[in-house]
Structure formats: structure tokens, C-alpha cells
């Protein structure tokens, strides 16, 4: 594997007496989109604030392209573009003026680069309007534009899908995948909704109460259980349940007029054939993917905010 773009080493944060982040250890690699998933109050934003030096690290360290954010702040932060929490801009300045403002803080950003970034996020039309009049989605885009100005090798986006409509989310997914695949940027995307980031991430780390409780690759589903949950609407439902229990040799659940079974994909045709062969009336079959969502919910259990 390539050298990690960012490393979290035993990262902890205590505010007052409360330990908010309880020791995070993971690496993010160039060209990878890492999802940082957790319920409200899990500590995503706090972790991101430490990654970019807005908050002091109580214990541990964040290493960005080999440089510690604690001791080599300038060198480390040069590599990072970020939106922390909401994409807040100067409301009284146009989108363009906002970008020029941030461009002045980093040497070497040309006007061409500013135009390029505006095009990339599709804000050409609204760029001369005041940012205060932007919709949340437009602000989100301006936020991303601001983060990309200096061609960072690490992009950190805190809830970038927040406030976006489905087409907006699809577009963001598209830029993010592009940045990772074409420009080898390491992207960290936080969210509390798995369904929104599942499609754009390569790996997802689940954080709860300040601890990482699982890190999963999204694409290697083979590792995960291959069992699918299948809902079959059938009549008479009780007999069908008994029949299926006898042939599958496992427990079958009933939900109103449906039986719910858990089988491998290859077994589905056989199950249907057997039901039809026994003259059961089959009205419908639904195959539920065993998604990460279930896993996520399973892992985090009830979300109790401590």
C-alpha cells in the first residue's frame, strides 16, 4: 500500500472532564474516499477540528503527508482543504470575492485557478451574487470550491451532503470520485447518513461515542455475509412458513401476509419453485440487500447521546 496521506495516532480529546474522543487510530490513503460515519454527537466534527488544527489535541497526533499538525502546522495544513461543519462564507461578499479572499491567504493561486474551481463546482452563474443570498446547496458548493483552491492532497468535508437535493448529492459524489481517481486526492467525508455516502466511499469508519467501532471496505461485499433477506407475500402464510422451515431447516419469520427468510442468492429460485409447486399463492417477492445500513444500525445500536 502507498504511504498514507493522513494518519491518526491514538487521537484523544478531553473537554473539561469529558473525554469526547477516546483514541482514534486509522490511516487514509491517497486516492481513497474515506467515509466517517456516526450518529449525532459521535465526535466527527471534533475529530475533524483536531485534524485541521482548530482544536488542540489532548493526546496522540495527526500526521499529514508525514508532517505533524501539532509541530509542523504550516507544512501540514498546506496539504489540506476543508469544510468544517457548515460551509459559512462572508455573506456580504460575492462568491467570487469570497474565493479571492481565501486565495490571498495562500501564495501561488492564480485567477485562472479560481475560475477553474468555479467551473468545477458549477457556480459560474451565481458567482457574482452575494454569498448571503445563496441557497444551502450553493453555499456547500462554494465551500468545496474554497477547499480546492490550492489543490490540496487531502480534502476533508464535514457533512457535505447536508442540505443538498438528490441531484446535488449525485454531483458531489461525482466530483469526489473524480478527485480521488483522477487526482489521487485522499478525501474524508463525514456523515450521519450511511445511504448518502455509501456510494462515494471506498472505506467507511464508524464512530460512536468517540470511538471507532468498525472500519469496512464498501466494495468487497464477499467478505460480508452473503445472506439476503427475502420477503415473500404468500397465501396461506402460516402453512408456507412451516413448509419453508422444513425445507430450509431454519427459523422463518412472518410479518402480516409475508414470510421473511434469510437465504443465499442462489437459493432464491428454488424457494420460489417449491412454494409454487406446493400450490401456494405467491403475490410478490422482495429481496432486501443486507446493506451496510443494517450493519451500521446493528453496530451502533440505539444512539444514546451521552
Amino acid at each position: 500500500m502507498s504511504k498514507p496521506a493522513m494518519q491518526l495516532i491514538g487521537l484523544k480529546k478531553t473537554i473539561g472532564k469529558k473525554e469526547i474522543i477516546k483514541g482514534l487510530d486509522f490511516n487514509i490513503h491517497p486516492g481513497e474516499v474515506f467515509g466517517f460515519l456516526g450518529p449525532n454527537g459521535a465526535g466527527k466534527t471534533t475529530t475533524i477540528r483536531m485534524m485541521v488544527g482548530l482544536m488542540k489535541i489532548t493526546e496522540g497526533d495527526v500526521i499529514i503527508q508525514g508532517k505533524s499538525i501539532k509541530t509542523e502546522y504550516k507544512e501540514a495544513i498546506k496539504q489540506v482543504g476543508a469544510i468544517v461543519e457548515n460551509p459559512e462564507m462572508y455573506p456580504f461578499m460575492s462568491g467570487k470575492k469570497n474565493l479571492q479572499h481565501f486565495a490571498r491567504m495562500i501564495p501561488g493561486i492564480t485567477n485562472e485557478r479560481i475560475e477553474e474551481v468555479i467551473k468545477l463546482v458549477g457556480l459560474e452563474k451565481a458567482i457574482n451574487e452575494k454569498a448571503g443570498r445563496y441557497s444551502l446547496g450553493m453555499r456547500q458548493r462554494l465551500g468545496i470550491a474554497q477547499a480546492l483552491l490550492h489543490r490540496p492532497s487531502i480534502l476533508i468535508l464535514d457533512e457535505p451532503t447536508n442540505g443538498l437535493d438528490p441531484s446535488g448529492i449525485r454531483e458531489i459524489r461525482h466530483y469526489i470520485r473524480n478527485l480521488a481517481e483522477q487526482e489521487n486526492v485522499a478525501v474524508i467525508v463525514s456523515s450521519h447518513l450511511l445511504s448518502e455516502i455509501e456510494l462515494m466511499c471506498d472505506r467507511i469508519g464508524i464512530i460512536k461515542n468517540g470511538e471507532i467501532i468498525a472500519i469496512n471496505s464498501v466494495h468487497d461485499t464477499t467478505q460480508q455475509t452473503d445472506l439476503k433477506e427475502v420477503h415473500i407475500e404468500v397465501d396461506p402464510v402460516q402453512e408456507a412458513k412451516q413448509h419453508l422451515e422444513s425445507i430450509l431447516e431454519k427459523e422463518v419469520k412472518v410479518d402480516q401476509s409475508k414470510v421473511i427468510i434469510s437465504v443465499l442468492r442462489e437459493e432464491i429460485p428454488q424457494v420460489i419453485k417449491s412454494l409454487v409447486g406446493q400450490n401456494y399463492q405467491v403475490y410478490g417477492v422482495q429481496v432486501h440487500r443486507s446493506t451496510l445500513e443494517d450493519k451500521f444500525l446493528e453496530l451502533i445500536g440505539e444512539n444514546t447521546i451521552e
Partner: peptide, 13 residues
Amino acid sequence: WGTIKLLLIRPVS
């Protein structure tokens, strides 16, 4: 305005 977060994540002390 919340812009302090954008101001302080630049390579400037």
C-alpha cells in the same frame, strides 16, 4: 459568521 474556521485553516499562523 463562522468564517473563523476557514480563516484559521490556512498556512498562516
